[in-house]
């Protein structure tokens, strides 16, 4: 690990100001992804601003019937919250489908949103990777791509966003609240939060340098039946090959988003409208224009089958 200096932030505005004004500075919350990447020197911050003393560790009701989730709420605490379990079951299901108990105890809500891809070429510093070192090329294209993206990718990068929690939050139309180095706050709908890679895969999100996530809000509950179906290479503690987050209403309408397939949680509202016509109709629309590789073309029929399984369960 490269050397760095360390301090504990006293408030959000000063934390954002420090990181915005100091190249090489980064926030650290749970640290479970950042320290992993620092050990292999994919991340090389020169200064860490520890956020643990900020009071963003609460889940509170908001006007209109939703919830505000503090950025530092742990994955375990968010999944276990009685209101989340009752009203946003898809979110609890998604969180407990990810990582391990130890990691969920430490990982924060904001950190989960900001976790980096698990593309093995991003992790391997002996390989070219446009996301890790812009302009160096992409070893995944033409390489081993079974785990990688089938849609929304570019000729510079075919990595996926690896998380589960964010797929449920995308389904729920969550909004991400931030404060920047100038003290200005903004609210970013999660639909606009993750970038498609295009020519600049090194930027995962629309956050500016030093912009700090303070909370995530959920609109009022949707009702319906909640599902998070995750297909992976082992039964627990593995990243998704394909995941399906869904809320299905009694009349067969609903919402659906896919994980493990794209640079962002993949939700196409026009495809959701086809839910009463069955899984194949939905995925045909949601994955229109997909560009899978030979290795990961299986994800397309797998997404249809995973959704079909969810729809069958919704009817049961």
């Amino acid at each position: 690990m490269r050397a760095f200096t360390y301090e504990r932030a006293k408030d959000a505005a000063s934390a954002a100001r420090i990181v915005a004004g100091r190249p090489g500075a980064k926030f650290i919350a749970g640290g479970t992804n950042l320290l992993d990447l620092m050990k292999i020197e994919v991340e090389t911050p020169t200064h860490l601003v520890d956020l643990q003393d900020l009071e963003f560790d609460k889940i509170t009701p908001i006007a209109g019937g939703g919830l505000r989730i503090g950025a530092l709420v742990s994955n375990t605490d968010l999944a276990a919250d009685a209101r989340v379990r009752r009203d946003y079951g898809v979110l609890t299901r998604a969180i407990v489908a990810g990582a391990s108990g130890q990691l969920r105890n430490k990982a924060s809500t904001a950190g989960n949103l900001l976790q980096r891809t698990r593309c093995s070429y991003f992790y391997d510093t002996n390989m070219p990777c446009n996301k890790r070192k812009p302009g160096s090329g992409c070893a995944a294209i033409g390489g081993y791509s079974r785990q990688l993206g089938v849609i929304g990718v570019s000729d510079k990068c075919i990595a996926t966003f690896p998380g589960d929690m964010a797929v449920a939050m995308r389904l729920l139309d969550a909004v991400i609240e931030t404060v920047d180095g100038d003290g200005a706050s903004r609210a970013i709908p999660i639909a606009d939060f993750y970038r498609l890679w295009g020519d600049t895969p090194e930027q995962d999100t629309v956050l500016k340098p030093g912009e700090l996530i303070t909370a995530v809000t959920l609109p009022k509950p949707l009702g319906g039946k909640h599902f998070y179906e995750k297909v992976r290479d082992r039964a627990s503690y593995a990243f998704a090959l394909v995941s399906v987050a869904a809320v299905i209403q009694p009349d067969g309408n609903g919402r659906v988003a896919f994980g493990g397939v794209a640079p962002r949680p993949w939700r196409i509202e026009a495809a959701e409208a086809l839910l009463p016509r069955g899984a194949a109709a939905v995925t045909a629309r949601a994955f229109q224009g997909a560009t899978p590789t030979k290795d990961n073309a299986f994800k397309l029929p797998l997404a249809t089958r995973a959704l079909a399984s969810v729809l069958a369960e919704a009817k049961a």
Partner: peptide, 18 residues
């Protein structure tokens, strides 16, 4: 200047034990 070819080039800070 710390650069192993990965990540942005950044001057290594002077670090004291804490």
């Amino acid at each position: 200047l710390a650069d192993n070819g990965d990540g942005p080039e950044m001057a290594a800070p002077a670090v004291s034990p804490m």
